[in-house]
Design a protein around this nucleic acid. Structure first.
Lengths: 142, 142
DNA sequence: CAGAATCCGATTTGATACTG
DNA sequence: CAGTATCAAATCGGATTCTG
Protein backbone atom coordinates (compact mmCIF):
# COMPACT_ATOMS: atom_id res chain seq x y z
CA UNK A 1 0.00 0.00 0.00
CA UNK A 2 2.00 2.93 -1.27
CA UNK A 3 -0.55 5.63 -0.47
CA UNK A 4 -0.30 8.02 2.43
CA UNK A 5 -3.70 7.61 4.00
CA UNK A 6 -3.11 5.92 7.33
CA UNK A 7 -6.61 6.57 8.59
CA UNK A 8 -8.42 5.38 5.51
CA UNK A 9 -9.04 1.89 6.71
CA UNK A 10 -10.15 3.13 10.09
CA UNK A 11 -12.46 5.67 8.58
CA UNK A 12 -13.93 3.20 6.16
CA UNK A 13 -14.49 0.66 8.88
CA UNK A 14 -16.19 3.17 11.11
CA UNK A 15 -18.26 4.59 8.31
CA UNK A 16 -19.59 1.21 7.35
CA UNK A 17 -20.44 0.38 10.90
CA UNK A 18 -21.78 3.77 11.80
CA UNK A 19 -20.13 3.68 15.16
CA UNK A 20 -17.73 6.52 14.69
CA UNK A 21 -17.47 9.30 17.21
CA UNK A 22 -15.46 11.48 14.90
CA UNK A 23 -16.19 13.98 12.17
CA UNK A 24 -19.61 12.53 11.58
CA UNK A 25 -20.57 13.47 15.11
CA UNK A 26 -22.20 16.86 15.30
CA UNK A 27 -20.27 17.88 18.40
CA UNK A 28 -16.86 16.82 17.18
CA UNK A 29 -14.45 19.75 17.54
CA UNK A 30 -12.60 18.75 14.38
CA UNK A 31 -15.69 19.89 12.50
CA UNK A 32 -14.46 23.44 13.02
CA UNK A 33 -11.07 22.61 11.56
CA UNK A 34 -12.69 21.00 8.56
CA UNK A 35 -14.88 24.01 7.92
CA UNK A 36 -11.94 26.36 8.25
CA UNK A 37 -9.84 24.36 5.82
CA UNK A 38 -12.63 23.95 3.30
CA UNK A 39 -13.96 27.47 3.50
CA UNK A 40 -14.33 29.34 0.27
CA UNK A 41 -11.13 31.35 0.46
CA UNK A 42 -8.98 29.22 2.73
CA UNK A 43 -8.61 26.53 0.09
CA UNK A 44 -7.29 29.00 -2.44
CA UNK A 45 -5.05 30.80 0.02
CA UNK A 46 -3.49 27.59 1.27
CA UNK A 47 -2.83 26.29 -2.21
CA UNK A 48 -1.25 29.60 -3.18
CA UNK A 49 0.98 29.62 -0.13
CA UNK A 50 2.18 26.20 -1.16
CA UNK A 51 4.03 28.15 -3.83
CA UNK A 52 5.86 30.22 -1.26
CA UNK A 53 5.60 33.08 1.21
CA UNK A 54 3.37 35.90 0.17
CA UNK A 55 2.34 39.35 1.33
CA UNK A 56 -1.20 40.40 2.00
CA UNK A 57 -1.51 42.49 -1.12
CA UNK A 58 -0.06 39.73 -3.25
CA UNK A 59 -2.63 37.28 -1.98
CA UNK A 60 -5.34 39.84 -2.50
CA UNK A 61 -4.30 40.13 -6.12
CA UNK A 62 -3.77 36.45 -6.76
CA UNK A 63 -6.92 35.14 -5.16
CA UNK A 64 -9.38 36.49 -7.65
CA UNK A 65 -12.49 38.06 -6.20
CA UNK A 66 -11.60 38.08 -2.53
CA UNK A 67 -12.33 41.21 -0.53
CA UNK A 68 -9.90 42.64 2.00
CA UNK A 69 -12.21 41.73 4.82
CA UNK A 70 -12.62 38.13 3.80
CA UNK A 71 -8.92 37.69 3.13
CA UNK A 72 -8.01 39.13 6.51
CA UNK A 73 -10.64 37.01 8.19
CA UNK A 74 -9.48 33.88 6.39
CA UNK A 75 -5.83 34.50 7.19
CA UNK A 76 -6.71 35.22 10.77
CA UNK A 77 -8.52 31.91 11.13
CA UNK A 78 -5.71 30.00 9.46
CA UNK A 79 -3.20 31.62 11.78
CA UNK A 80 -5.26 30.78 14.83
CA UNK A 81 -5.45 27.19 13.72
CA UNK A 82 -1.70 27.08 13.31
CA UNK A 83 -1.77 26.49 9.58
CA UNK A 84 -0.32 29.82 8.57
CA UNK A 85 2.51 31.86 10.03
CA UNK A 86 2.17 35.59 10.06
CA UNK A 87 5.30 37.69 10.19
CA UNK A 88 4.81 41.41 10.63
CA UNK A 89 7.74 43.69 9.98
CA UNK A 90 7.49 46.90 11.96
CA UNK A 91 8.33 49.22 9.14
CA UNK A 92 6.63 51.98 7.27
CA UNK A 93 4.88 51.21 5.12
CA UNK A 94 3.72 48.07 6.91
CA UNK A 95 4.86 44.74 5.59
CA UNK A 96 3.36 41.42 6.57
CA UNK A 97 4.29 38.07 5.17
CA UNK A 98 2.28 34.89 5.33
CA UNK A 99 3.65 31.41 4.97
CA UNK A 100 2.63 27.86 5.71
CA UNK A 101 3.61 26.16 8.92
CA UNK A 102 4.64 22.50 8.65
CA UNK A 103 1.12 21.61 9.71
CA UNK A 104 -0.37 23.97 7.18
CA UNK A 105 1.80 22.54 4.46
CA UNK A 106 0.49 19.05 5.12
CA UNK A 107 -3.08 20.25 4.96
CA UNK A 108 -2.45 22.39 1.91
CA UNK A 109 -0.89 19.49 0.04
CA UNK A 110 -4.03 17.47 0.53
CA UNK A 111 -6.20 20.34 -0.58
CA UNK A 112 -4.00 20.82 -3.61
CA UNK A 113 -4.65 17.24 -4.62
CA UNK A 114 -8.35 18.01 -4.65
CA UNK A 115 -7.90 21.30 -6.46
CA UNK A 116 -5.68 19.73 -9.06
CA UNK A 117 -8.15 16.93 -9.56
CA UNK A 118 -10.93 19.42 -10.18
CA UNK A 119 -8.88 21.35 -12.68
CA UNK A 120 -7.66 18.24 -14.44
CA UNK A 121 -11.10 16.69 -14.61
CA UNK A 122 -13.31 19.68 -15.16
CA UNK A 123 -14.08 18.57 -18.71
CA UNK A 124 -15.29 15.22 -17.42
CA UNK A 125 -17.43 16.96 -14.83
CA UNK A 126 -18.99 19.19 -17.45
CA UNK A 127 -19.56 16.13 -19.59
CA UNK A 128 -21.27 14.27 -16.76
CA UNK A 129 -23.49 17.24 -16.15
CA UNK A 130 -24.43 17.33 -19.81
CA UNK A 131 -25.19 13.61 -19.84
CA UNK A 132 -27.46 14.07 -16.87
CA UNK A 133 -29.44 16.74 -18.62
CA UNK A 134 -30.16 14.36 -21.47
CA UNK A 135 -31.31 11.43 -19.37
CA UNK A 136 -34.16 13.13 -17.59
CA UNK A 137 -35.93 10.31 -15.83
CA UNK A 138 -35.09 7.63 -18.33
CA UNK A 139 -34.58 4.71 -16.04
CA UNK A 140 -36.72 3.41 -13.22
CA UNK A 141 -36.47 0.63 -10.75
CA UNK A 142 -38.78 -1.56 -8.78
CA UNK B 1 7.46 11.18 -8.45
CA UNK B 2 5.20 8.39 -7.22
CA UNK B 3 2.25 10.55 -6.17
CA UNK B 4 -1.01 10.75 -8.06
CA UNK B 5 -1.18 14.49 -8.61
CA UNK B 6 -0.77 15.01 -12.33
CA UNK B 7 -1.64 18.67 -12.17
CA UNK B 8 0.55 19.53 -9.23
CA UNK B 9 3.48 20.74 -11.21
CA UNK B 10 1.23 22.78 -13.45
CA UNK B 11 -0.57 24.29 -10.54
CA UNK B 12 2.62 25.09 -8.70
CA UNK B 13 4.17 26.65 -11.75
CA UNK B 14 1.15 28.80 -12.41
CA UNK B 15 0.78 29.77 -8.80
CA UNK B 16 4.34 30.92 -8.56
CA UNK B 17 4.03 32.93 -11.70
CA UNK B 18 0.59 34.28 -11.01
CA UNK B 19 -0.42 33.82 -14.58
CA UNK B 20 -3.05 31.18 -14.10
CA UNK B 21 -6.51 31.46 -15.55
CA UNK B 22 -7.85 28.67 -13.39
CA UNK B 23 -9.32 28.32 -9.94
CA UNK B 24 -7.62 31.47 -8.76
CA UNK B 25 -9.59 33.42 -11.33
CA UNK B 26 -12.81 34.78 -9.92
CA UNK B 27 -14.81 33.84 -12.99
CA UNK B 28 -13.56 30.29 -13.33
CA UNK B 29 -16.54 27.94 -13.50
CA UNK B 30 -14.67 25.27 -11.58
CA UNK B 31 -15.03 27.51 -8.56
CA UNK B 32 -18.61 26.29 -8.32
CA UNK B 33 -17.50 22.67 -8.35
CA UNK B 34 -14.98 23.39 -5.64
CA UNK B 35 -17.55 25.06 -3.44
CA UNK B 36 -20.01 22.23 -3.93
CA UNK B 37 -17.43 19.61 -3.04
CA UNK B 38 -16.14 21.49 -0.04
CA UNK B 39 -19.49 22.59 1.31
CA UNK B 40 -20.18 21.79 4.91
CA UNK B 41 -22.32 18.70 4.38
CA UNK B 42 -21.11 17.52 1.00
CA UNK B 43 -17.74 16.54 2.39
CA UNK B 44 -19.32 14.34 5.03
CA UNK B 45 -21.89 12.84 2.69
CA UNK B 46 -19.30 11.96 0.06
CA UNK B 47 -16.98 10.35 2.55
CA UNK B 48 -19.86 8.34 3.97
CA UNK B 49 -20.95 7.17 0.54
CA UNK B 50 -17.42 5.94 0.01
CA UNK B 51 -18.48 3.25 2.44
CA UNK B 52 -21.33 2.15 0.22
CA UNK B 53 -24.82 2.97 -0.98
CA UNK B 54 -27.08 4.58 1.54
CA UNK B 55 -30.68 5.66 1.91
CA UNK B 56 -31.77 9.16 2.75
CA UNK B 57 -32.73 8.35 6.30
CA UNK B 58 -29.48 6.51 6.88
CA UNK B 59 -27.47 9.50 5.76
CA UNK B 60 -29.62 11.74 7.91
CA UNK B 61 -28.76 9.61 10.92
CA UNK B 62 -25.10 9.17 10.15
CA UNK B 63 -24.27 12.74 9.29
CA UNK B 64 -24.66 14.22 12.72
CA UNK B 65 -26.50 17.50 12.91
CA UNK B 66 -27.71 17.79 9.36
CA UNK B 67 -31.28 18.90 8.80
CA UNK B 68 -33.54 17.26 6.26
CA UNK B 69 -33.53 20.36 4.17
CA UNK B 70 -29.77 20.69 4.04
CA UNK B 71 -29.27 17.02 3.33
CA UNK B 72 -31.77 17.09 0.49
CA UNK B 73 -30.19 20.23 -0.88
CA UNK B 74 -26.70 18.80 -0.63
CA UNK B 75 -27.67 15.54 -2.29
CA UNK B 76 -29.46 17.43 -5.00
CA UNK B 77 -26.37 19.48 -5.79
CA UNK B 78 -24.13 16.44 -5.78
CA UNK B 79 -26.50 14.65 -8.14
CA UNK B 80 -26.62 17.62 -10.48
CA UNK B 81 -22.85 17.70 -10.59
CA UNK B 82 -22.74 14.03 -11.43
CA UNK B 83 -20.99 12.98 -8.25
CA UNK B 84 -23.87 11.07 -6.74
CA UNK B 85 -26.38 8.72 -8.31
CA UNK B 86 -29.92 8.77 -7.04
CA UNK B 87 -32.06 5.70 -7.49
CA UNK B 88 -35.69 6.01 -6.55
CA UNK B 89 -37.73 2.85 -6.19
CA UNK B 90 -41.39 3.43 -6.83
CA UNK B 91 -42.70 1.57 -3.86
CA UNK B 92 -44.66 2.35 -0.76
CA UNK B 93 -43.16 3.41 1.50
CA UNK B 94 -40.78 5.33 -0.75
CA UNK B 95 -37.23 4.14 -1.03
CA UNK B 96 -34.36 6.14 -2.46
CA UNK B 97 -30.77 5.08 -2.56
CA UNK B 98 -27.74 7.28 -3.06
CA UNK B 99 -24.38 6.10 -4.27
CA UNK B 100 -21.21 7.53 -5.74
CA UNK B 101 -20.68 7.72 -9.46
CA UNK B 102 -17.17 6.89 -10.71
CA UNK B 103 -16.53 10.62 -10.83
CA UNK B 104 -17.89 11.09 -7.35
CA UNK B 105 -15.74 8.29 -6.06
CA UNK B 106 -12.61 9.96 -7.33
CA UNK B 107 -13.55 13.23 -5.68
CA UNK B 108 -14.62 11.53 -2.47
CA UNK B 109 -11.35 9.67 -2.22
CA UNK B 110 -9.47 12.93 -2.30
CA UNK B 111 -11.75 14.45 0.28
CA UNK B 112 -11.32 11.38 2.45
CA UNK B 113 -7.57 11.92 2.43
CA UNK B 114 -8.17 15.37 3.88
CA UNK B 115 -10.73 14.16 6.38
CA UNK B 116 -8.50 11.33 7.49
CA UNK B 117 -5.59 13.70 7.87
CA UNK B 118 -7.64 15.99 10.10
CA UNK B 119 -8.76 13.13 12.28
CA UNK B 120 -5.31 11.62 12.50
CA UNK B 121 -3.66 14.94 13.26
CA UNK B 122 -6.23 16.66 15.39
CA UNK B 123 -4.02 16.33 18.47
CA UNK B 124 -1.20 18.12 16.67
CA UNK B 125 -3.59 20.86 15.58
CA UNK B 126 -4.81 21.36 19.13
CA UNK B 127 -1.20 21.42 20.26
CA UNK B 128 -0.28 24.04 17.70
CA UNK B 129 -3.21 26.15 18.79
CA UNK B 130 -2.09 25.90 22.40
CA UNK B 131 1.47 26.85 21.51
CA UNK B 132 0.17 29.90 19.70
CA UNK B 133 -1.73 31.06 22.73
CA UNK B 134 1.49 31.06 24.75
CA UNK B 135 3.63 32.96 22.29
CA UNK B 136 1.60 36.13 22.10
CA UNK B 137 3.75 38.54 20.18
CA UNK B 138 7.06 37.14 21.30
CA UNK B 139 9.09 37.59 18.17
CA UNK B 140 9.52 40.61 15.96
CA UNK B 141 11.38 41.37 12.80
CA UNK B 142 12.81 44.36 11.01
C1' DC C 1 0.57 48.87 2.92
C1' DA C 2 -2.10 46.11 5.99
C1' DG C 3 -5.57 45.99 8.29
C1' DA C 4 -9.74 47.22 11.86
C1' DA C 5 -14.40 48.90 12.24
C1' DT C 6 -18.89 49.70 10.67
C1' DC C 7 -22.96 49.22 7.98
C1' DC C 8 -26.19 46.53 5.63
C1' DG C 9 -28.10 43.57 1.91
C1' DA C 10 -27.80 38.75 0.28
C1' DT C 11 -27.41 34.17 1.14
C1' DT C 12 -27.49 30.22 4.10
C1' DT C 13 -29.34 27.55 7.66
C1' DG C 14 -32.42 25.19 10.45
C1' DA C 15 -36.97 24.09 13.06
C1' DT C 16 -41.33 23.04 12.01
C1' DA C 17 -45.25 21.57 9.54
C1' DC C 18 -47.11 19.31 5.68
C1' DT C 19 -47.48 15.77 1.56
C1' DG C 20 -47.41 11.62 -1.65
C1' DC D 1 -39.95 7.04 3.99
C1' DA D 2 -38.40 10.83 1.49
C1' DG D 3 -38.93 14.59 0.75
C1' DT D 4 -41.20 19.91 -0.02
C1' DA D 5 -42.89 24.46 1.85
C1' DT D 6 -42.50 28.14 4.86
C1' DC D 7 -40.64 31.36 7.87
C1' DA D 8 -37.32 33.35 11.18
C1' DA D 9 -32.63 33.42 12.61
C1' DA D 10 -27.90 33.38 11.73
C1' DT D 11 -24.10 34.01 8.92
C1' DC D 12 -21.74 35.64 4.95
C1' DG D 13 -19.71 38.89 2.31
C1' DG D 14 -18.57 43.27 0.34
C1' DA D 15 -18.29 48.37 -0.05
C1' DT D 16 -16.82 52.02 2.66
C1' DT D 17 -14.32 54.56 5.98
C1' DC D 18 -10.58 55.09 9.05
C1' DT D 19 -5.78 54.29 11.17
C1' DG D 20 -0.69 53.44 12.23
Amino acid sequence: MPTDTPGASLRAALAEQNQGAHLMAAACPSRAVLSHLTSRWAVLVLVLLLGGTRRFSALRREVGGVSEKMLAQTLDALCSDGFVLRQAYLVIPPKVEYSLTPLGREAAERLAVLVDWIEDNYPRIEQARADLARSVSTEQAA
